[in-house]
């Protein structure tokens, strides 16, 4: 039986894999790698001095710093609320739960420009309840909270569902109260998923553009994020400067992605 499979193994399984690999490499190189390589390569076109001065200008630094801080804030908030909401979706029961659960993915499905407009409707100048935070740093935070909402929730939900209930019962039988069970038994097992979701959220947040365009006012040194700064540089016919900042931004995101994989492996070391 197994020799038969071995004889056949050359044909069905091996070849499509090879074809797939060839096509994938070609496609990815053309569509993804080539353009990104251009950004990296041409960012130093004006010389390293030009690169450095583009990246270290006051406005650039301010934009990058603001981006980092507000993305971090949004990530932390959504990590906490995301875990809470995941808990409610998995362990609680109430009418309309399924609809709410499905709507969590709305920020994934909704165009970012519409997201911005949506938040502006309630929290901008035309707000029916008089809350107007448009053109403030809080508005940027709001936009980022919106677009990164689903990441941690969707990362934590499957882990919570799979969690061995008997571990919790064992802790109860040993005398732990509900709070202890959550903090000492449940939460530690959720941390890898929370971190993974948070990393994805962060990577998304630092590059976010569409939802911030309308609501932030793009005020330099105040509400201007890195992506808007890059946009302005392109508009001002300074693509090389824009490329320099982009490289810094990309490095940040790449570092985060590598971090995710590392975290994932570290978290899995306990698994059966």
């Amino acid at each position: 039986m197994s020799t038969l499979a071995l004889n056949l193994r050359g044909r069905p399984a091996g070849r499509p894999g090879a074809l797939g690999l060839g096509v994938s490499t070609l496609w990815l190189s053309l569509i993804v790698l080539l353009p990104l390589a251009a950004v990296v390569a041409r960012s130093t076109e004006g010389g390293l001095d030009a690169f450095w001065s583009a990246v270290s200008s006051r406005q650039a630094v301010s934009a990058l710093r603001f981006t980092l801080l507000v993305s971090l804030a949004a990530t932390v908030v959504n990590a906490v609320t995301g875990t809470l909401i995941a808990w409610v979706l998995v362990r609680d029961q109430f009418r309309g739960k399924r609809i709410v659960g499905a709507l969590i993915d709305l920020p994934f499905a909704l165009p970012t420009i519409v997201a911005g407009l949506t938040l502006l409707a309630l929290y901008g100048p035309t707000s029916p309840v008089g809350i107007d935070v448009a053109f403030t740093q809080f508005a940027v935070l709001l936009a980022l909270l919106f677009v990164t909402l689903p990441f941690v929730i969707r990362a934590v939900q499957p882990v919570l569902i799979e969690l061995d209930r008997e571990m919790e019962e064992a802790a109860l039988s040993l005398g732990a109260n509900a709070r202890t069970v959550f903090l000492r038994v449940i939460l530690p097992n959720l941390v890898p998923a929370i971190l993974s979701g948070a990393a994805l959220a962060f990577a998304r947040a630092v590059g976010e553009f569409g939802s911030i365009v309308l609501i932030s006012g793009n005020i330099p040194f105040e509400t201007q994020v890195a992506s808007m700064f890059i946009f302005k540089q392109i508009e001002s016919d300074n693509p090389i400067g824009a490329a320099a900042i982009s490289v810094v931004l990309m490095l940040l995101s790449l570092l985060v992605l590598v971090g995710i994989r590392g975290l994932g492996r570290w978290g899995a070391r306990h698994d059966r």
Partner: peptide, 20 residues
């Protein structure tokens, strides 16, 4: 009386080890 206060010890079929 809830489980945590009954002073019992419980052993599960699938061990329920705290894997972390």
């Amino acid at each position: 009386v809830p489980a945590q206060r009954r002073g019992i010890g419980f052993v599960f079929q699938h061990y329920a080890a705290f894997k972390h």
